[in-house]
């Protein structure tokens, strides 16, 4: 199931435009242009980024790195990162695991698949955890679990909300059952935080699947998602093979989940900060009838 996703995502060239002939003639270097996988429009990467990676033509929400997400969501200059030094070991002595981690570290300039820290959202102090699908498919190993758990605890100590943006293929296979247990560890931490009145907001972004969808991603007081995000437990192909049925086109999309009662709302990326800031405001202490 993880593999399915991985394979789907892997052909990077699909994401970047196969440079059209006119463009090639003008000698446009690779990466400057990008092709929308949904409407096939080719556009400048720079302009797409300015639009928070939302396709200008069809509204398709392209992926975002954790850093891009942070910059789009947290008030400028207010972010302090937590645990930037935590790094994976190789508990199962899985051949080549740490090398792969190292490659992704170089590629993403992150220590692991989640960025955690404290910052302000339209002035409201908040602890955030932002997953990055470019790092080992956003899979959850010991470091991801530990960073998220520490972030939840820090939100508890500070008495501020905990917001998580999820993007994950699920478990980190190379860490075996320790990966599975991160679902338990993070959920236990959320339970204590919640019992003490803590506010949890989960925003599921593309893709949120497997063990992450079956733990903290689904445990928000408010569960939101970005339009078109793939969200589900089991992979589409496995389900089709098991039930011998063709699944509907919109199966496991954010909109599908909304219809089936699993989400409070689907929120466009351009409105994300505003809507969540509204909720943070609703949850300020000591409201009085004016």
């Amino acid at each position: 199931m993880i593999k399915d996703l991985f394979n789907k995502q892997k052909p990077k060239k699909k994401k970047y435009a196969t440079i059209p002939t006119e463009a090639s003639k003008q000698d446009v270097p690779e990466g400057i242009m990008q092709k929308c996988p949904k409407c096939k429009k080719i556009m400048y990467t720079k302009e797409l980024k300015k639009n928070l990676n939302v396709c200008m033509q069809c509204g398709h929400h392209h992926g975002m790195t954790a850093v891009e997400r942070r910059d789009s969501f947290i008030d400028e200059g207010t972010f302090q990162e937590f645990d930037a030094g935590l790094t994976s070991t190789n508990p199962l002595n899985f051949p080549g695991y740490l090398e792969k981690v190292d490659v992704d570290k170089q590629k993403t300039k992150m220590n692991e698949a989640v960025l955690t820290g404290v910052g302000r959202v339209e002035g409201f102090e908040t602890v955030v955890a932002i997953m990055d699908a470019n790092f080992r498919m956003g899979s959850m190993g010991s470091v991801v679990g530990e960073k998220i758990t520490r972030a939840i605890e820090e939100a508890g100590r500070r008495g501020v909300p905990f917001i998580i943006f999820t993007a994950s293929g699920g478990a980190r296979m190379q860490e075996g059952v320790l990966s599975l247990m991160q679902m338990a560890k993070t959920s236990v931490a959320l339970k204590r935080f919640s019992e003490n009145g803590g506010l949890i907001i989960s925003v599921m972004t593309h893709p949120t699947t497997g063990g992450v969808s079956a733990s903290f991603a689904s445990l928000g007081d408010y569960n939101f998602a970005e339009p078109g995000a793939l969200i589900g437990f089991a992979g589409r192909r496995i389900i089709e093979q098991t039930i011998h049925e063709k699944l509907p086109e919109d199966f496991q999309t954010a909109e599908f989940l909304l219809k089936h009662g699993q989400l409070d709302a689907v929120i466009h990326r351009h409105e994300m900060k505003e809507k969540i800031a509204f909720l943070l405001d609703i949850h300020q202490q000591g409201g009085e009838l004016a």
Binding site: Y222, N223, L258, K259, H260, G261, Q262, L263, D264, A265, K275, F278, L279, I282
Partner: peptide, 21 residues
């Protein structure tokens, strides 16, 4: 500032009842 919230987190979202903060 009404924000509608959807779904029972079990089966569906019933339009015959609306709610939110």
């Amino acid at each position: 500032d009404f924000m509608e919230l959807h779904g029972d987190r079990l089966f569906g979202d019933d339009g015959a009842i609306v709610g939110g903060v």
